[in-house]
């Protein structure tokens, strides 16, 4: 089915559906992401963004629809098989492995995509201090991850996602809980990776300013469907998107389209 043109999209989804009980949290989503791009997925709470991420990364199985990563059908693959093919993600509520040291967290993350069932032999690990510094963490790599502040966990999680050298990175609210300068620094770092390594990124975000500053493309979601897709300015001007956010203190304010909180 997939048309094989010169540069196929890194990720392509067709007709994704996921229902919980009677509620269709994701209701027929089609999307495709080209290599080396940064796209933002926006929408109010409950729009289905997080469910959509779970479907893309394999935490949930879709009721219908198919998925391709670099042209390969991954619809039925387990999450770790998708990770092996280069798909990485972060979670809305950040979390790392608290009983492991920072260095072990990073070493594990770096190895896991290529060694899904690690054995006894220690492989050369990436330099933990460098990886930590890259996300702005100045911490002893030997210390346990337990006891980090939320902002630190958030950054460590990103460092771990990047340590596996993914093709595609899905970030669920990467900047929630971070202040303005930290936000920009983090997204700037990701943008740098996109430029250097040809990484492809899809992230959800409530902060309009961050979306406008970093995303080359915006997908808007409501009630499980994509209602707009295009350059940020075009989406912001889309009547459907405007209707969706009517009555909320939106345009111009840095606080975003909707109050932050948990999605489905």
């Amino acid at each position: 089915m997939s048309p094989r043109d010169a540069s196929p999209p890194v990720l392509r989804a067709e007709g994704l559906v996921k229902a919980f009980g009677g509620i269709r949290a994701v209701d027929g989503v089609d999307l495709s992401l080209d290599a080396g791009t940064i796209s933002a997925l926006i929408g109010p709470n409950g729009a289905g963004k997080t469910t959509c991420f779970h479907l893309l990364a394999g935490q949930l199985r879709p009721d219908a629809g198919r998925l391709w990563l670099d042209g390969r059908d991954i619809s039925r693959l387990e999450p770790h098989r998708r990770a092996a093919l280069g798909l990485a993600r972060t979670f809305q509520i950040a979390g790392v492995f608290p009983s492991l040291s920072l260095a072990d967290n990073l070493a594990l993350a770096a190895e896991a995509p290529r060694r899904p069932r690690p054995g006894l032999r220690r492989r050369a690990a990436p330099d933990a201090a460098t990886l930590l510094a890259r996300v702005g963490l100045d911490l002893d790599p030997g210390r346990p991850a337990a006891g980090l502040s939320y902002g630190q966990v958030k950054r460590l999680e990103l460092a771990m996602a990047l340590a596996g050298r993914p093709r595609l990175l899905l970030m669920d609210e990467p900047t929630a809980g971070l202040d303005g300068p930290e936000r920009d620094r983090l997204l700037g770092l990701v943008a740098g990776q996109v430029a250097e390594q040809g990484l492809t990124v899809l992230f959800t975000e409530h902060d309009v300013a961050a979306v406008f500053a970093h995303a080359g493309r915006v997908l808007a979601m409501a009630d499980g469907r994509l209602i707009a897709d295009g350059p940020p300015a075009a989406v912001a001007a889309d009547p459907a998107v405007q209707r969706l956010y009517l009555g909320r203190p939106s345009t111009g304010s840095a606080t975003g389209f909707a109050p932050s909180g948990q999605d489905v």
């Binding site: 394999g58 935490q59 990770a83 896991a112 290529r114 771990m160 996602a161």
Partner: peptide, 8 residues
């Protein structure tokens, strides 16, 4: 998370 990172 372990699965998402690639662990089987």
């Amino acid at each position: 998370r372990a699965a998402a990172l690639g662990l089987d």
